[in-house]
Amino acid sequence: MIQDMWNALLHQPNTQWVVLSTMLLGIASGVLGSFALLKKQSLIGDAVAHAALPGICIAYLLIGEKQLLVLLLGATATGLLATYLIQLITTTTRIKKDAAICLILSVFFGTGIVLLSKITQQAGGNKSGLDHFIFGQAAAMTRNDVYTMAGAAGGLILIAFLLFKEWKLLIFDPDFAKNSGLPVGLLETLFSTLLVITVVIGIQAVGVILMAALLIIPTISARYWTDRLGWMVVIAGSIGACSGIVGALISTISTGLATGPLIVVTAAGCFIVSFTIGPKRGLIQKLMAHRVRLKEESI
């Protein structure tokens, strides 16, 4: 199987493109995920991902064909609507954030399922292939899809690189950021929008249900290796990239397996390794420290 993977990677341009794009996606979500985690917004990504489904379906119903860019525009629209509604519910009622997230997530997803079931039974035309958006199917991406996704992911990484220090300050100390004359509102909005875009471009490869994992797992894993934000972003990006590559490769060579779950399981593997041997608060490190302390105390 490893042999097959190498062959595919070395000789099939299509596979190379798919792998490259999932790698870029992994980096982008690792980077954006790090900021989202520190802003305590990890699960907003989950809501956005689920909420993307009705957007994709509506866009498809409107234009009647599977054109990735338009579908992603639809997904971005409903994704942003979902974040806005969560905000509105928590500010205008006594409903807490967790319940608001769950509510919006499940209702949007349910609506998406209604639309999807309608689309799949519509006679004629090519089978929509929209159900690939649920668990992700990297192999089903066309050349154009791959270009779109790689371009968007590259753009996201570039913006995050340029705005790194501003976002860092914004997250760590919003009041100070405001005092230093940063356009805080603008930066916040930009961040939310980019987070939504990350989720949206990821759903074709990872799927709406599991996309949140790609934002969360590499980021948390990175915490076990470093205490510095800069390194954290780099490590999270690398773990994301790794998961993307491995997941996409296994999925493309053994047809039928959805890409999303494979990427997530790979990322979870990285997490377990980091959790165990990571030098910062990893399990082994903790045990050693405990031992040293016991020794010191007995002396």
Binding site: L37, K40, S42, L43, D46, D98, F135, I209, L210, A212, A213, L215, I216, I217, T219, I220, L257, A258, G260, P261, L262, V264, V265, A268, F271
Partner: peptide
């Protein structure tokens, strides 16, 4: 807490789907 939730259920669900 929400990150712990995010890690555990996505992993379990992914394994289930596979």
């Amino acid at each position: 807490e929400d990150a712990s939730i995010g890690i555990v259920f996505t992993t379990f669900f992914a394994i289930g789907v596979i």
